[in-house]
Write a protein that binds this DNA or RNA. Structure first.
Lengths: 107, 107
DNA sequence: TAGGGTACTTACTAAGAAGTAAGTTTTTGA
DNA sequence: TCAAAAACTTACTTCTTAGTAAGTACCCTA
């Protein structure tokens, strides 16, 4: 169970994960959606005042492409689009908690 | 225990951690040192063929500054410098494992 | 017919991270 | 006197990411 990893392959595996999280705004977005929260585009905009629209969709689209969030479009006028985490996305929460706890342990 | 975090502060906490891990070569280096391994500069160079010397020290220095690795200098000629993880650095391993396991769970 | 709300696009610029290639120091051994 | 080994430095270029600022489509309401 520890034998399947070489330093290179383990590093590579973690890097795949980091690539998913690495955008400048992805974590804030994630933490706004953890716990089953559903938010529309404009709500996220308000919740994260410093973000621009360009960055917001860019990050959302990448999270969507990576299977972390889903996008639900309501064909109304004015338009309405909702974002929420996938199951898999929700499961990220405890893993990030582990990192947070590690950081708190700094001597 | 979950109340001390706002989306912004939790994201910020995780970002601090990601910043430590984010260099292009840091994870490979880390995984070469996990488990109490001690390596000298030249050994890491050989273990990670694609890395340049510039990148190798740069990443090592940053890991050192962040309290993850320690550097031991032997005043010999030719010089000898050894790198190993700090206690805190070792404790990163299970947290990274959590990420790896999460990644494996992708539906 | 003009304006407003929502969710985007697009073109351009600036800042940062990484890569390339070469040079530096020190002392020992041929 | 010259080369060699180990651990770095330095100057310069390129590549990626983020920021700025503006524009678009849609249809409803006044």
């Amino acid at each position: 169970m520890t034998e399947k990893w070489t330093p290179a392959s383990a590093a590579d595996g973690v890097e795949q994960v980091l690539k998913i999280l690495e955008g400048k705004w992805k974590l804030v977005i994630l933490f706004h959606l953890f716990g089953g929260q559903v938010k529309r585009f404009s709500e996220l905009e308000k919740a994260i005042p410093a973000i621009t629209q360009k960055m917001l969709i860019q990050q959302l689209r990448q999270l969507e492409a990576d299977g972390i969030v889903t996008r639900t479009i309501y064909h109304q006028v004015p338009p309405k689009v909702e974002y929420r985490l996938t199951e898999w996305g929700q499961e990220l929460c405890p893993a990030l908690d582990a990192l947070l706890k590690w950081a708190e342990n700094k001597a």
